[in-house]
Write a protein that binds this DNA or RNA. Sequence first.
DNA 1: TTTCAGGTGGTGC
DNA 2: GCACCACCTGAA
Length: 291
Amino acid sequence: MERMPTRILKFSNPTFDMEQTFTSGQCFRWNAHEGGGRYIGVVGGSILCMEARGACGYEVAVYGADMSDAALRRYLSLDVDYAVRQAVLARYDAFLKAAVASSGGIHLLRQDPFETLIAFILSGNNNIPKIKMSLEALCERFGEPIGTLEGRMYYAMPTAERLYAAGEDALSVRAIGYRKKAVYAACERIVTGKIDLEAPLSLSYELAREWFKAFYGVGDKIANCIVLFAYGKEEAFPVDTWVKKLLKVYYGVEKDHEAFIKSYFLEYPGYAQQLLFAHMRSSDRRGGSGA
DNA sequence: TTTCAGGTGGTGC
DNA sequence: GCACCACCTGAA
């Protein structure tokens, strides 16, 4: 049975690239279909099916729960001026200039806080296919079914209450391993401690980052990812093994990463990090020198 | 078979 | 403070 979409949304945006954005590592519930010409993802209670239309236009079919045009624009940061960010960062140095050219189609998403918290707890000492595996398994087992699309059932992200009620042992989904403990601890803390995940919205970047580090299994790197990808705190510049590598190769920085970042990336640090990260990974795949 | 992967928390100094 | 190191597990 082929279902009718709840709504069709269209937008045109010269700085948004679907593939670059959904493969940038900030989200884990979008997947390529038909050789990358189409992406299907779950956002909240909706299944979104996105396809390019013309030069810089996209059409989004919404299934399941409705999604307003405003909600989609917020999720994709369509009203953020990335052209200005690109122009500013391209003037910094040759690496950022190249990164803007190769990966400038990335938009920072504004994702659900709880889903982002759990996804990045799963990301520790892990790789993207396995993160997606575990997250998807949690959704299939504990999330609300949204509907079937092209023969596949899609599930919403379960709530903290649901995961907490299931108990830690029940969270033993595929590839989760020892991260189960931290996932459960986060749910327990949120439910029993009545932790409000909206609270960091009104905190500064530094305070929001520390707020998340109070969760077991959330250190500096994961806290930075959460505040950047779910709260739009653009001062965040997550440092992982890839970023350490690029700071060394591009900038000759091997220690005191945080101090260098704070003194050098004065404008749009979060976006700069995403561009450099994507650029290094794409040069790496091409077997290039990285520059 | 071994090594590694978007790290973190615990331990020892 | 700071340098190690164990930790689940799937893929190469």
